[in-house]
Each structure stands twice: as C-alpha cells, then as structure tokens.
C-alpha cells in the first residue's frame, strides 16, 4: 500500500496539473494563470523550505532573491528588446534558460555574501539581518530610475523558451510546473543525502554537528545559497508571468508571504510549499473576492495552524514527518 504522504503528494501534484487542463478545455484561461501563480509561489517556497524547513534558518529576506530573479528577467529582456548592450558589450536576452542561469548565478553570489555575514548569528538576529539586507536591496531598486524605480519594470512580451509558445498560458504553465517538480526532486534528494543529514542536524542540534567534526557554518551557508538559487529562479518566472518586475517582489511582505506558505503547508515537508501555495492563492482568490481584508482571515487561519496543527496542512493530511 502507498504511504499516506505519497498519496497526498500525488493528489496535490495531479490536482495542480488538472486545473489548467480543465480550464483550457472549458475556455477559462484565468484559472491557468492562477495555477501558474501557485506553481511559481510554491517553487519560491520550495527554495525557502531548504533553508527554513531542513536547516531551521528562518530567513526573513528571501524576497531579495525572489526580486533579484524577477529584475534579472526584466532587465535582460528590456536590454534585448531595446537592443542596448548591458555592460562590457554584453547583450540582453529574451531566452528563459539564459535568464534563469544569470538569475541563479546572481542570487547564489548574493546569498553567499549575505549568508557569510548573517549566518554568524542565529535566532532573532539572523531574522533581522536577512530582513535588513532584503530591505537594502528593495530601497536600492526603488531609487534606481534606470530600471523603473518605484514603478517597476515591465516586459513588453513574455520571454521565450525553445520550442514552446510561452505567450500562451498553458505552455508557460507547463514550464513553471516542470521547474517546480524539478525543484521538488532536488529538495527530496538533498533531504535524503549526507548533506541533508548534516543540514537537518544543524537545525536540531548544532553542537552535535560540531562535535562530530562538521563545521555548522559551512553546511548552513551551502544550504542558504541553494535555497536562494531556487527562490531566484521562481522570481524570474514570476516576472514573466506578470510581464512585470515589481519592487514589491523585493519587499518584506514578500519574505513574510514565503514564510507563511512554508508554515501553512508544513515546513520541511516535500509538498508543504505546494500545499501552502494552493491554500494561500485559494484564499487570496475566494476571500479576496469577498473582502479586501482577506488577509485578516488568513491571519486567523495561520494562527490556527501554528497553534493546533504544528505540521501544517501536510501534517494534517499525511501525519507526522518521520526522518528514518
């Protein structure tokens, strides 16, 4: 018999795939966009889940990577569109794989820098330092007129992917969905690996890690960088979804939203971010249609999850996590 968690995971994965297929069949493209939004937010949260769920690193600055990913996509596309070289004669590009690569490299380097400083602290200090870095980048973005400043930066057309017409909702959804699945495979591999064992030990008992001869900082730094790279990729896709890189992608609200997704779905769980993103977007859509104050109700639900079902939605549906 299939373990309950596998069953829940399969249902969630198929559900997210089914919604846009049905939506296209009944000619309701809006639901394709909604599903794409879920897939991208889930992808960003899978990234955060590596740091937060596995490593216990409560980064309140992951919006930095999400936003950098988004701005990378928009800036590269703008330069390509206007046929202006970037710098050193480098050209922009509208090809998604190239954009992703650049976004992931930049986010990785940023995370290396931020992590080297912030990971020397822990607890509330770590939260504050990651927040401070993200806010610095946010204010930098809104005060840089060349790339839109407070208005953000729009893309004239969605970037391209070889052999797919990404301007249509469904092919773009497939791209995002595939990247989400790939990131979840990565998450699952990391969690089961030697690195994952060290990382999960860093969360539970850092002294123990040091006492077997593993330097906790190195493990946490590597996790922080991987985490940022995944979230950065999501940011690039998000800019493409909206055809717009908004400064709000960089703001602390976004960091908070990502944490909410992870907690809501179940931190450290493979499908926690997807469950969290589905629930979040569903609330945003349904409650948001009724009242502008929908986040008040989201807050109540989050309170309920934290107080009564510590394992999040996945904990509720699939039982307590076991690490073997």
């Amino acid at each position: 018999m299939m373990p309950r968690e596998t069953l829940v995971n399969t249902v969630l994965a198929l559900l997210l795939l089914a919604i846009p297929l049905v939506a296209v069949a009944i000619d309701e493209p809006f639901y394709v966009t909604l599903s794409t939004r879920i897939a991208i937010l889930a992808l960003a949260a899978v990234g955060l889940n590596i740091a937060l769920g596995l490593g216990g690193l409560v980064s309140f600055g992951h919006a930095a990577f999400f936003g950098i990913g988004g701005y990378t996509a928009a800036i590269l596309a703008t330069h390509a569109f206007n046929a202006e070289p970037l710098f050193f004669g480098l050209e922009g590009t509208t090809s998604m794989p190239w954009i992703w690569l650049v976004a992931m490299v930049i986010c990785g380097l940023m995370a290396l820098f931020i992590g080297l400083i912030s990971l020397r602290t822990s607890g509330v200090y770590f939260i504050m330092i990651t927040l401070a870095f993200a806010q610095m980048i946010y204010y930098f973005a809104i005060s840089w007129p060349a790339y839109g400043g407070e208005d953000g930066l729009s893309l004239s057309v969605r970037n391209t992917f070889p052999l797919l017409s990404t301007a249509k909702p469904l092919p773009f959804f497939v791209v995002c969905y595939t990247m989400l699945l790939a990131a979840m495979v990565l998450f699952s591999l990391i969690r089961g690996s030697r690195f994952g064992a060290a990382l999960q030990t860093a969360r539970q008992n850092e002294t123990r890690l040091a006492a077997v001869g593993i330097v906790p900082l190195n493990i946490k730094l590597a996790a922080f960088v991987i985490s940022a790279i995944v979230t950065g990729l999501a940011g690039a896709l998000f800019a493409d979804l909206n055809r717009f890189a908004s400064p709000s992608m960089l703001s602390w609200h976004m960091s908070g939203e990502l944490i909410v997704l992870v907690i809501l779905g179940g931190k450290g769980r493979l499908f926690g971010p997807l469950a969290g993103a589905m629930l979040y977007v569903m609330f945003e859509y349904t409650l948001g249609g009724i009242t502008e104050r929908w986040q008040f109700f989201l807050g109540l639900i989050l309170l309920g999850v934290v107080l009564f079902i510590r394992g999040g939605l996945l904990g509720l549906l699939a039982g307590k996590a076991r690490y073997g």
Binding site: L189, T201, G213, G324
Partner: peptide, 23 residues
C-alpha cells in the same frame, strides 16, 4: 542509527554529497 551514521559521514569527510540517499 542515523545519529551514529552522521559520525561516520563526518569521519569520512563526505558531508558535501547532495544526491545519494544515506538510508
């Protein structure tokens, strides 16, 4: 067992392997 396996992997200096499952 995994508590002890962590010590073994540390001794082997192999904590930066990301893919192969330990179990």
């Amino acid at each position: 067992l995994r508590n002890v396996m962590l010590a073994i992997q540390a001794r082997q200096g192999s904590s930066f392997r990301f893919f192969r499952p330990v179990l």
